[in-house]
Each structure stands twice: as structure tokens, then as C-alpha cells.
Design a protein around this nucleic acid. Structure first.
Length: 426
RNA sequence: GUGCCUGUAGCUCAACGGCAGAGCGCCUCACUGUGGCUGAGGAGGCUGAGGGUUCGAAACCGUCCAGGCACCCCA
């Protein structure tokens, strides 16, 4: 045990029960994405570091991306996010694509960060983007996708909420308060930190950032204003459209939502556990210009990304995860003795040919052990074929759930099993 | 990068500086053609590693390793 090589920090082993959850999540994601007419795509997991350096947070990329030199000496990184790759892919075909395009993706990403609750170094992310669209209706569509996803996996509006704000609105608020637009970034960061600090230390931080007392008071007042969104035409229509789609209960206004990304220009949003337990489940927003950095013509859009780590924690907390089955088989064929092993294998083959998932014992042991094994892995039906059955060209089928068993002729077996299984799954 | 917490049986955890234990799980048997339940037995540990203090260390001290949590950041 001591000599076992430890897994890479921040990675996860997906045991069958974990893989089951991952696959289930992927399936739900696909379902919702396709329900809204989106197309699945993917980008390389490896990219040149330059692709990310072109964007705002260069330092962060250098510090928080997995970077290495390939044999040719190029700086390669495991992708820390999808958007730059998406931008390149769109830019390459910008002249031939019909816009708006609706794309989604689910895959692995890597960030060299200190792991903690809801954050690992290797994680999966669902990305959804509506490209070439610039209207409140397109913003509302992405929010509707989030809400529909929550609904589909069984999360309720009193458990998770998508909190929405508008960068335009906040720009205006800051201007009205009389804060220089050059200080916009630092004020945004300040707003972002409101929840983590006490009012006193937040006040001190504000003063440090050259906000005067009058401005501070006005800022506090603005952030406390539940009706602030009414001053934003885009938010008003976004909320109205969500009501039309009957999904408004999942979405609410929150002036404190800012998001770190510089390229967001319109609405920004994030979803989290209503009790603010843990970090954001997903985050996204409207961008005015996705592709010009990588050589395309300006193209607006709206998108979001959801990480699997936080999502799973929330699903677990609210009991939304499906129950894991320790086997995929519906039937287990026992092996009476060494002599009958070939006949058992043949029987299992026939059952599979009939389209029924079946495991045949490969180790010969006492029936007690074989039944116990069947019970442990959760197979509902067990077949015994000993000398008595062989003589009559029958098998014994035992239902482990009802504890009853019946003798069935080989000829009728597939039909019998199919009916049995249809009954128990109903 | 900074700070705090935790490493004991397969798992979850006990043990005042004085014989390392429990529950669950596992194996065997009761049950030589039938699982769960019950009962009776049994296996399983260099207490994360390597040092120091001590008559004596799982416990105390410092080092390393691993994990967790928070800060930072969050593309």
C-alpha cells in the first residue's frame, strides 16, 4: 500500500459509481442542449499558450494553466477554458456559417489551482454559446437553458437560483454615483467581494480604492435596491421573456453579480445554491465581441459554463442523484459444476442473443456463493441449470426480489425473462 | 503563493503519555441444489514516513509526505 503511486493532485479517479454520475450528468446536459436545438462540438484539449495570452488575464494563464514544452519547443497548455478555442473555430469559418449558431460542449479542463471544496485541477465543463446574437431574447434563451437544466435534474427554484445583473446597468450606476470610469474595474472587484467581508472591512477596502464616503453610501444604497433592475431595459425584457417561458422562478436579479471576465459587456449571471453554500455552479454572460482577438470580424453572443464538481455537490446535497446499480446485468447464470460450465456458457449466450443483459459465472463454486454474489451485485434474476433441469431441457429461474422460482423450458426462456423484466421495471 | 485542520483495520471512528479497540464490511460454518435475516467462530494494524523528547509515544516536539478547508483567483 505504501508504495502505491499517488494520483496527481487535484485529479479524481472515476470508480464505476462516479462514472455513473458523470455519464448521467452528460446525458442530462445533452438532453437539455438538444431540446433547445444546440449542436455539440469539441476543441482540442491541447492548445498553444498564445491562444490564451491574447486575452485579458495573461498573468493568470501563466500561473494557473498547465503548461509544458513539447519536443519541438513550443509552449503547450492543457486547455483551462473553452472560449478562446471556440472563438478560433468560429473565426475560421465565419464566412460560411449561418448565424446565429447554437453550440454546446462537455469535456475536461485543467487549471493549476489549490484544490478545495467544489474545485479540482481536472474537471469537466458544460459550455453553451449562442453566437451571432445580440438581443435580450438571446440572453433570455441562455438563462432558460440553465433553468430548464435545473428543472430536468430535479433541482427546485428554492434550492438553486440563477442571479443576473447587467454590466451596462452597473456602468451607469457607477457613473451616476460619480465614480470615474477609469476606476470601473476596481469598483467591480469591490462589489464582487461584498459577500466575503463584513460591512466594516468592506468599507475600509472601498476607502482604500479611492471611493469617498458619499460615493460609498450611494453604492451601498444602489446594491440594496431590489428594484434597480427596472432601470435597465435589457433586464426588464429578459425577465419578461423568462416569465413568458414560465421559467422566471429560477432567475432573480442580483446587483452583486459581476463575474471576473473582462469580455462580458451585457448581462452577466451565475447560479448557486440558494443558501450561498459553496461557490458558483455556473457562470456566464453576454459578450459584444468574441472573435476579433483571434482574427475574425466582431461577433456578439451569449454563453455560460457549468463545472461538474460543484454541480455534483449540489445534486448530492438535494438528493437528486440517481441510484447506482452495481451491475448492468438483469440475469445471472450459475454454474452447477465444472462439467456443466460449457452448457451454462451456451445458455448465457442464448440469453444475450435474445437481447437480455446477462452474466455467467466463470468461477465454479457452491451455489450458496453464487447466489450470494448475485445478491451482492444486485442482479434481479438467477438461473440454475443442474442435472435435473438438463434432463428435462429446463432451467430454474429464481426471482431474488420476490424470492419465488419457477421451472421454465429452454424454448420459452427468452419470452419468460422478457416478461419478468418488463414487470419488475414497471 | 499565504494560513488553519486532519492522517489509527477495507470503511466510519474510539483509546488520560501506560496491553490498539468498536461498529459496519469481509471470510468460514449452521445450510454437501438456492441470496438477504439470525446465530457461532475467524482473519485483518510497523497507528502516513522517518527523526527527537521519555523508563515508556498513536498521543508531546520539529521535518517530510498525503488529504481537507479557507484566503488569493475564478477564464
Amino acid at each position: 500500500m505504501g508504495s502505491m503511486i499517488a494520483p496527481v493532485k487535484g485529479t479524481r479517479d472515476f470508480y464505476p459509481e462516479d462514472m455513473f454520475v458523470r455519464s448521467w450528468l452528460y446525458q442530462k446536459i445533452r438532453e437539455v442542449s438538444q431540446l433547445f436545438g444546440y449542436l455539440e462540438f469539441d476543441a482540442p484539449f491541447l492548445e498553444r499558450i498564445d491562444l490564451y495570452a491574447a486575452k485579458s488575464g495573461e498573468e493568470l494563464v501563466r500561473e494557473q494553466a498547465f503548461v509544458f514544452q513539447d519536443r519541438g519547443g513550443d509552449a503547450i497548455t492543457l486547455r483551462p477554458e473553452l472560449t478562446p478555442s471556440l472563438a478560433r473555430m468560429i473565426a475560421q469559418r465565419q464566412k460560411q456559417l449561418v448565424f446565429p449558431q447554437r453550440w454546446w460542449s462537455f469535456g475536461p479542463f485543467w487549471r493549476y489551482e489549490r484544490p478545495q471544496k467544489g474545485r479540482t485541477r481536472e474537471f469537466f465543463q458544460w459550455n453553451v454559446d449562442l453566437l451571432g446574437a445580440d438581443s435580450p431574447a438571446s440572453d433570455a434563451e441562455l438563462l432558460a437553458i440553465c433553468a430548464s437544466f435545473f428543472k430536468l435534474v430535479g433541482l427546485q427554484a428554492d434550492q438553486v437560483q440563477v442571479r443576473v445583473n447587467s454590466r451596462h446597468l452597473m456602468d451607469r450606476v457607477i457613473a451616476e454615483i460619480g465614480i470615474d470610469s477609469q476606476k470601473k474595474q476596481s469598483v467591480f472587484q469591490l462589489i464582487d467581494k461584498r459577500d466575503k467581508l463584513s460591512m466594516d472591512s468592506w468599507h475600509s477596502l472601498a476607502i482604500e480604492n479611492d471611493i469617498n464616503e458619499t460615493q460609498f453610501d450611494l453604492l451601498v444604497k444602489a446594491l440594496a435596491d431590489k428594484n434597480l433592475w427596472k432601470k435597465s431595459d435589457e433586464l426588464v425584457s429578459v425577465f419578461d421573456m423568462l416569465s413568458q417561458m414560465d421559467l422566471a422562478e429560477y432567475v432573480s436579479f442580483d446587483p452583486q453579480v459581476i463575474r471576473g471576465l473582462d469580455y462580458y459587456t451585457g448581462i452577466v449571471f451565475e447560479a448557486r445554491d440558494i443558501s450561498k453554500d459553496g461557490r458558483a455552479i455556473l457562470g456566464g454572460g453576454h459578450y459584444g465581441n468574441l472573435v476579433s482577438d483571434v482574427g475574425g470580424d466582431p461577433l456578439p453572443g451569449v454563453g455560460f459554463a457549468m463545472g461538474d464538481v460543484m454541480m455534483r455537490l449540489v445534486l448530492e446535497k438535494y438528493g437528486c442523484l440517481p441510484e447506482f446499480q452495481n451491475t448492468t446485468a438483469s440475469v445471472l447464470v450459475t454454474v452447477f459444476d465444472q462439467e456443466l460450465l460449457p452448457k451454462s456458457l451456451q445458455l448465457a449466450g442464448q440469453i444475450r442473443a435474445g437481447g437480455i443483459k446477462c452474466v455467467c459465472m466463470t468461477e465454479v463454486s457452491k451455489l450458496v456463493k453464487q447466489f450470494k454474489y448475485a445478491d451482492r451485485i444486485g442482479v434481479p434474476l438467477v438461473i440454475v441449470m443442474g442435472p435435473e433441469e438438463v434432463a428435462k431441457d429446463e432451467v430454474t429461474v429464481k426471482d431474488l426480489v420476490t424470492r419465488s422460482q419457477e421451472n421454465v423450458t429452454r424454448e420459452n426462456l427468452i419470452d419468460y425473462l422478457a416478461i419478468k423484466l418488463a414487470q419488475s421495471s414497471a
